[in-house]
Design a protein around this nucleic acid. Structure first.
Length: 339
DNA sequence: AATCGGGACAACCGCAACCTC
DNA sequence: CGAGGTTGCGGTTGTCCCGAT
């Protein structure tokens, strides 16, 4: 037996809302509220609209304090950061941007922000394409990832002041699954963007990122502050190990990463945002790398190792976890896992 | 001036979670 | 505890607008 329709489809108007309908809906809700029942609401006011449609219209357009128009650089940063961190959980992202609706943000991401990033991503690759073709591209490793990580251990750490790097994806997984470099892959892109994520580099952007709730802040780790002095020794040891092994993380390296609660590992690594809409590069080519990276390819990761900072993340783990548990309830997490 | 194509945005749809009885 | 109704969410579609040809 199928689900009963929420309204009489035949007797319901669809399409754009007229000013009269807007006025009716708005004035009613302002006076009486929604009455806790959107389905019944259109009948009460004599609107030939589906209750869901009314709700959407109110939430996305008529509600007071809705902000329309251009998104600021800071909002861009927040959206990107959270998208990288939690995926297309637009309602959660919207909750961090007062006045913006999930629909707005979703549209903005799909129509502009994604292209903005893709444009920069492609732009960043193009100048080197010829040389990479010259050298030949290995099967399964596109020129993106080759260029992204850089092969020169002497490469300078790019100064990348703008975009926060997210803590969640860096949480290590088991050594059986060499997916540790997804965070590095994010960094690859962001470093490639080289702080030009926004059109005008803004060195003044401060962390924590303004506007994001304190409990979500642990997701966001300023890249230039990732290595805390206290953890330098451990990091150096780890980095050295990684470099010596050309990023073949062995037991010793992974030992540093041990001690994580398995459920959290699961949460982070078994539930990556799934639909990336061509932005898989944002989340890294970890699957490809994991599956196909062999000893001759491990050089790719040498440079990355100098940018990875597990110890700080480990020390921050509990805070991150608490933040997640607060902002995303366990149910939400399960919801995410189910998706 | 007409047509076409792409971008932007509003709205719809379907599913799953939640709530109530 | 289960069924039915409602709400919330994210993906997709439809439509309008504007610039290019």
């Amino acid at each position: 037996m199928g689900r009963a329709p929420c309204c009489d489809k035949a007797n319901v108007k669809k399409g754009p809302w007229s000013p009269e309908e807007d006025t009716k809906l708005k004035s009613y809700i302002e006076q009486h509220g929604t009455g806790g029942n959107w389905i019944a609401l259109p009948q009460k006011i004599g609107l030939r609209r589906c209750g869901k449609s009314c709700r959407l219209r109110w939430l996305n357009y008529l509600r007071p304090n809705i902000k329309h128009g251009e998104f600021s650089e800071e909002e861009d940063n927040i959206i990107c950061s959270l998208y990288i961190s939690i995926g297309s959980r637009w309602s959660i992202i919207a909750a961090q941007l007062p006045g913006r609706t999930d629909n707005d943000i979703k549209n903005y991401w799909n129509t502009r922000l994604k292209k903005k990033l893709l444009g920069k991503h492609r732009k960043a690759h193009q100048p080197r394409k010829a040389s990479s073709l010259k050298q030949g591209t290995r099967k399964g490793i596109d020129d993106h990832s080759l260029q992204a990580v850089g092969c020169n251990a002497n490469n300078q750490q790019p100064y990348w002041p703008e975009l926060p790097v997210l803590a969640a994806p860096i949480v290590p997984c088991s050594s059986q699954e060499p997916r540790f470099n997804d965070h590095a892959s994010i960094r690859k892109l962001l470093m490639k963007l080289g702080g030009e994520f926004s059109d005008d580099n803004n060195p003044n952007l401060q962390y924590p990122v303004n506007g994001i709730s304190s409990t979500l802040q642990p997701y966001l780790v300023p890249s230039i502050e990732m290595v805390s002095p206290a953890s330098n020794d451990a990091l150096n040891a780890c980095t050295s190990q990684l470099e010596n092994n050309h990023y073949n993380i062995d037991d010793q390296g992974m030992a540093i990463l041990s001690g994580f609660q398995p459920d959290y590992d699961e949460m982070v690594y078994e539930n990556p945002p799934q639909r990336l809409d061509g932005l898989e590069f944002l989340f890294g080519d970890m699957v490809r790398n994991g599956a196909e990276m062999n000893s001759t390819e491990s050089f790719e990761c040498v440079e990355m190792s100098s940018t990875m900072s597990y110890p700080p993340m480990i020390s921050n783990y509990e805070g991150v976890r608490q933040g997640i548990l607060q902002d995303l309830s366990l149910d939400e997490l399960r919801h995410g896992e189910a998706r």
